[in-house]
Write a protein that binds this DNA or RNA. Structure first.
Length: 815
DNA sequence: GACCTGCTGCGGGTTG
């Protein structure tokens, strides 16, 4: 038994688990590894003990025998959140104090003051707790290699969270450098359970690693309950708010000590908060709200109050998904579909955050059909179905940033760094030629920008590429990182009248002439100019594009599988779960009006209403895929018959709506849904170029092509003119093989259109038997999709103002 | 007849 741990555990009155001993042993024998264990079982301590043991030469460490002293950085702990860094810092401070260790642990994030940073440079602590971005910032300073030379351990916390994003690429690249500086570096990762844990390990530790995978053999106890409405008849067929079940949620809150109420959107959180306070004024002061639009102060106040057990409940969004552990929380409520199994589990795990305590989660459906997800979630959890995290590959934007980082720091030797980079998972396939292209872009702007001196950034000095301009170096440090916030576009009439702002990601998907809803008006897009969308009022009925949203919020493929599984039970009448029994009347209705699809069937409904001619299709593939499938279908249809469609979709299916009748039969549907020539039809049927252009903005920002401006300062530089859109056009015209340009298109196909998933969906559908019905009225399946297209969109002004009043209320609390 | 969808995360500073 690890002697330091012994002391600690003795003092705590704890019994160490098998996985902790396994971790210590692995670390003691000089191995790297990945640790997977449920939250609340002391993963963090397990790793710290191993690291500390290594630090003290004397294996039989006792207080009086501290003899290892150094001013060298010994361990680096990377977390994805500043708040998490602080949490780990606090815990380790306590530990150090308890054991009277001579081991200095410090924090280094964006919050760290300049003075502290300077001190850390001069006399490094033994351990540094930090973020991926801050590690890159250290790499971007002189003497970085020296600073990291004695580093023995690196821990990447919540690796599953980083891996699926470009921040994961930042970590991969930093590791490649640190490993090169010190080949004996031991890497440890901490990951929640995901579908591809082995892959996660391989990406972190590198190919041919001989690290261990420590899996705790502890099953966290989890209780899942669906909250049912009193009767199905009075429960809405559509909608996503769930406020009808307010009283039942309050009942749950009353039964537990502290409850987190998760909603899917910020506005939904606001609405729930208001409704609870209005209906139950006794909750004033005991109920709080937490999401990304609130100020840091409010959020910190809420977190602190949660810690201290002062709150009865907090209504929140994903902002409380991760990180800080709130011991008093012993119940979680999920309003609406959690959209993914991993996220559902993650949220459930926010409660009962102690060994052997049960996590309680209540699932609150917001419309009739959604009730079924209660059954699907239980099925998925019971069968250990969890999503994978898909790592980014070939993110040349991050590579360009990284190369600049090195050049700002100690300077880089191209062929050395090429070999290092090639060992990462992300750039496994990079060729010498591609790397040379990257270098060329940094040295003289590459093929198309060499005429501009601003893009001659790297200079070769004694075999090392360096950034010599202090201005450029400074600017680079400011823009380190891979998080790009969504741009807001100003919506304006031709006269110049300003209507409001809207996510650029939405506008970028429209073509001139498309009609959309905004702030309660129906508008036609005339043109997009820089960051302005010029529109005019429209009354046109057809061609309305209600939304091509959902870029990020579709249900996961795995939850989709679980939902399809639940549906298969309904038709076969094998479902024994409460959810399926409860929904019988609804499905009866569906069957009477149209039909219920089996697992190997695809239901298609053709319905004529006063609004037009609707074609409803139900593949159960998630909203994102449905949007794409619908576009392709509409495009293919348009080539056969002259019909204009508007499109709507939800998690279960999609709708093509036309003002004019069209003819349809089984054979035609089969043909329209053929998986053949899919790539071609996507490219032609969807405005891929515009999507790539929008994607390119992020890429250009990360790559350092466009400078985002000094924080808090107005950007005056002429670089503003050289915006991403311009680069995109230049590359399209003069450098079509540009790596960043190609990356933009790849990302569109991989992440936005999810071409792979779409292809699989088409493949699956093509093997299904098509059941075509002609119902007289809208069916329970059709109604939610139908209502989707008749909703006002983007009138989020009123919840913004609600937000303001709330802020005022909360601020009153501070006094 | 039923309908208020769209999250989160990070981030300057020594060559006087």
């Amino acid at each position: 038994m690890n002697p330091i741990a012994e002391v600690w555990f003795f003092n705590q009155g704890w019994q160490p688990h098998g996985f902790q001993k396994e971790t210590w042993k692995a670390i003691a024998t000089g191995r790297s590894g990945l640790l997977n264990a449920p939250t609340g079982f002391g993963k963090t301590f397990a790793l710290w003990f191993g690291i500390l043991q290594h630090y003290y030469e004397d294996k039989h460490f006792r207080r009086q025998q501290q003899k290892f002293k150094t001013t060298k950085l010994h361990a680096l702990w990377i977390t994805p959140l500043r708040a998490l860094s602080k949490e780990i810092y606090k815990a380790t401070q306590e530990l150090s104090a308890e054991l009277e260790l001579d081991y200095r642990i410090e924090l280094r994030t964006g919050d760290t003051t300049i003075a502290q940073r300077q001190k850390q440079r001069k006399s490094p602590p033994q351990a540094l707790i930090t973020t991926p971005e801050s590690v890159h910032l250290i790499l971007a300073s002189k003497g970085a290699a020296d600073y990291f030379k004695h580093l023995e351990f690196i821990v990447v916390d919540e690796w599953h969270e980083l891996m699926g994003s470009k921040r994961g690429v930042l970590v991969e690249l930093a590791l490649s450098r640190l490993k090169a500086i010190n080949p004996k570096l031991k890497i440890w990762g901490v990951s929640a359970t995901i579908g591809n844990l082995e892959e996660a390990q391989e990406i972190l530790l590198g190919k041919d690693h001989n690290g261990v995978l420590v899996r705790a053999q502890i099953q966290k106890k989890l209780s899942i309950e669906t909250v049912f409405p009193d009767n199905l008849e009075r429960f809405p067929w559509a909608g996503h708010l769930g406020i009808k079940l307010l009283d039942k949620v309050v009942d749950i809150v009353n039964r537990y000590g502290t409850t987190l109420i998760f909603t899917n959107t910020r506005s939904q959180a606001e609405i729930w908060y208001q409704h609870i306070i209005t209906a139950y004024p006794e909750f004033a002061g005991l109920l709080a709200i937490h999401h990304g639009s609130l100020s840091d102060e409010i959020r910190q106040w809420v977190e602190q109050a949660l810690h201290e057990g002062k709150l009865k409940a907090v209504v929140c969004t994903s902002s409380l998904d991760l990180g800080v552990d709130f011991r008093p929380v012993n119940c979680v409520v999920q309003i609406g579909s959690p959209k993914g199994i991993a996220r559902f589990l993650q949220r459930a795990g926010r409660s009962g955050h102690r060994p052997y305590e049960t996590s309680h989660i209540y699932y609150v459906p917001t419309n009739s059909l959604e009730i079924i997800e209660g059954d699907s979630l239980k099925y998925a959890v019971a069968h250990h179905i969890v999503e994978q995290r898909i790592p980014y590959i070939r993110s040349f934007d991050v590579l360009l940033q990284y190369l600049t980082t090195l050049a700002v720091g100690d300077g880089l030797e191209a062929h050395v760094v090429f070999e290092e980079v090639k060992k990462t998972h992300c750039f496994e396939s990079i060729t010498e030629d591609e790397f040379a292209q990257c270098m060329a872009m940094l040295v003289h702007g590459g093929k198309s920008l060499s005429a501009y001196p601003d893009f001659h950034r790297l200079v070769l000095v004694d075999g090392l590429y360096k950034v010599e301009s202090r201005k450029l170096a400074m600017r680079h440090r400011l823009s380190v990182g891979a998080i790009v916030s969504d741009l807001m576009m100003r919506v304006k009439f031709m006269s110049g009248k300003y209507l409001g702002s809207i996510e650029e990601s939405f506008i970028s998907r429209l073509k001139a002439g498309d009609v959309f809803w905004f702030s309660g008006r129906q508008l036609e897009l005339i043109q997009v100019r820089n960051i302005e969308a010029i529109v005019k009022p429209s009354t046109r009925r057809t061609g309305v594009v209600p939304s091509w949203m959902g870029g990020r919020f579709s249900i996961s493929p795995d939850l989709g599988i679980a939902i399809r599984h639940s549906f298969s039970h309904i038709r076969k009448r094998t479902g024994k779960s409460d959810e399926i029994k409860f929904l019988q009347p609804l499905f009866k209705e569906q069957e009477n009006r149209s039909g219920l699809p089996q697992e190997d069937e695809l239901l298609v409904e053709y319905i004529h209403t006063k609004y037009g001619y609707h074609l409803f299709v139900y593949p159960f593939e998630g909203k994102l895929v449905h949007e794409g499938v619908a576009q392709v279908l509409a495009y293919r249809f348009g080539k056969i018959q002259p019909v204009t469609f508007s499109i709507a979709s939800n998690e279960y299916g999609f709708e093509l709506l036309s003002a004019t009748p069209f003819s349809i039969d089984q054979a035609l549907i089969t043909e329209l849904l053929s998986p053949k020539h899919l790539h071609k039809d996507i490219t032609e049927g969807i405005n891929v170029q515009e999507m790539a252009r929008r994607r390119f903005r992020d890429i250009a920002g990360i790559a350092g092509l466009v400078f985002q401006g000094y924080p808090g300062k107005q950007m005056k530089s002429k670089h503003l003119q050289a915006n991403a859109g311009l680069f995109f056009s230049v590359f399209e015209d003069y450098d079509p093989h540009n790596l960043l340009l190609r990356q933009a298109y790849d990302e569109v196909f991989d992440f936005q259109l999810e071409e792979g998933r779409m292809q699989r969906a088409f493949d699956r559908i093509s093997s299904h038997r098509i059941v075509l019905t002609f119902p007289e009225k809208l069916t329970p399946f059709a109604f939610p999709i139908f209502s989707e297209s008749f909703r006002e969109r983007y009138s989020n002004e009123d919840w913004q103002s609600r937000l303001e009043t709330l802020k005022l209320q909360l601020e009153g609390k501070f006094e």
